[in-house]
Simulated assay, not measured.
Amino acid sequence: MEDEHQEAKRARTIRFEYNRDVESVQAWIQAAEAKVQDKSVEPHKLKEFLQEIHCEIGSVTDQLERLTRHGHMICQRTSNQGERELVANTITSLTEQLQQVKNWLEDKKAQVGDSLESWQLFIQLYNSLRSWVERQRNFLSEPLKFATLPEARGKLQEYTAAVKDCKWANKQAAEMTAELAKIGQCSDVGPLTDKQAEMEQEKADVESNLKEVMALLQEMAEEWEQCERKSKDVAGWIEKTRQSLDNPQNKKRSLRDQLANREKVLADVSIQKTKLVMAMEKLQVHFRDRMCAEAQVSHENEKLQRRLDELQVAVKEDCRTLEACVHQMDAYQQVSVFHNVSWATTYSNW
């Protein structure tokens, strides 16, 4: 009787421990599966989960081995076929589930490792792009002052290079997006989405500003070239006109022709002045905000205006002199005609 009592007690203990281990292993497997498959946490946290599971899996394996032994003992001693099948199926199922967790654990370790590398690379790309944005902002904040057209062209070349450099920035942003997608395959991307959006916006703003200033510089350089070309044309016209007026051959022409020629020069002087004014006004449209030029270009324009004024004064003086001469000549001719007519009348009467 004593032996039977002990055997019954031992059987109850085995069943109790078996059921306890089954519940414990099932609960652990469910919790481990939830942690391994959880994509709502960042890879750093997921790595901690995997480390916890890895540390616990040894004791869970021991529990599974114990419940397997107890299960086999129950199957050997029970006369209930249904119970034997249930215990056997439970052992098989838990063994397969635990092995599945182990497989997931290894796969997830590799994925998390890749995610952490992508996370680190994303931060490196972010910091690199952040530095680029800061450099371009500092570049954009530099005053745009030019003393000569070559200086303006030099600054235009700098902005052209900066705009070309935007391709590198766009590539960096694209790589950030790619790394973000890799991280999102097995875990949460955390604050990286906001960082990505923030950097995309800042990059776009800088790129837009660079292109805007480059376009303004391009327009200004073109207007400056036209202004200088007009100035050269006017300077050449002044020199050519002076040479023409001083040409001895022209002084042999009639007084009326000389006067008409100078009157035309006066009209042309006004046209040349208008050309200079319009060219300078078009150029000064671009000398606004941070973009301005030193006084050299306007000084050249003013110098030409003074030369035109001097030419205008000289030609007006010539016109007055020629007009006086023409008037004298007309008066002389009228007197001469009068005397000739009077003499002819007297002669005929005589």
Rank of each mutant, 00 (worst) to 15 (best):
V265A: 00
N250L: 08
T61Q: 14
I183W: 02
V341D: 07
Q120R: 14
D21S: 08
A260Q: 12
S131V: 10
G190D: 14
C186K: 13
S118E: 07
L322P: 02
N340L: 14
E117C: 07
Y18C: 02
K171Y: 12
I238R: 02
F338D: 15
H339T: 09
Q296P: 01
Y332P: 03
L50S: 05
A204N: 04
I53Y: 05
A181N: 05
V337I: 13
A197M: 08
A34Q: 14
A8S: 11
L255W: 06
L276E: 10
G236R: 05
A260G: 09
A32F: 10
R69L: 11
V189C: 09
K45C: 08
T160P: 06
H327F: 04
W237A: 01
A169S: 12
G154F: 08
L50I: 07
V326S: 01
M73Y: 13
Q136A: 05
Y159D: 06
R306F: 05
Q76D: 13
E207A: 07
S115L: 04
C292R: 04
G154K: 11
K164F: 03
K39P: 13
E202V: 07
M73N: 03
F287Y: 06
T78V: 08
D194S: 09
L156W: 07
R77I: 00
A279E: 09
R288V: 10
M329E: 14
Q305E: 11
L67I: 14
A331D: 15
F16I: 01
V297W: 04
D257F: 12
I53P: 03
L46T: 09
A169F: 08
E310P: 02
I238S: 01
R307G: 00
H54S: 09
A314R: 14
K316D: 00
A260M: 11
A147V: 04
E198P: 11
D233R: 01
Q249V: 15
L216W: 12
H72W: 03
H299K: 15
K102I: 00
R262T: 05
E48P: 08
E212L: 10
C166Y: 05
P191E: 08
K203E: 01
S79V: 13
A161H: 11
H339C: 15
E106A: 11
L94C: 11
Q76R: 09
V341G: 08
C55N: 15
M176P: 02
Q157E: 08
I14G: 03
H286L: 00
C292D: 05
K155Q: 04
V337G: 07
I53W: 06
H44C: 03
M176D: 03
A344L: 13
T241S: 00
Q37W: 10
V41E: 12
T177N: 14
G82C: 03
A32I: 12
D194W: 03
E281W: 07
E7R: 15
Y159E: 05
I29A: 11
L50A: 05
E300S: 06
W350M: 10
Q218F: 12
L125F: 00
T92G: 06
M220A: 12
K39S: 15
F16V: 03
L116N: 09
F287R: 02
G82M: 06
H44S: 15
T90V: 07
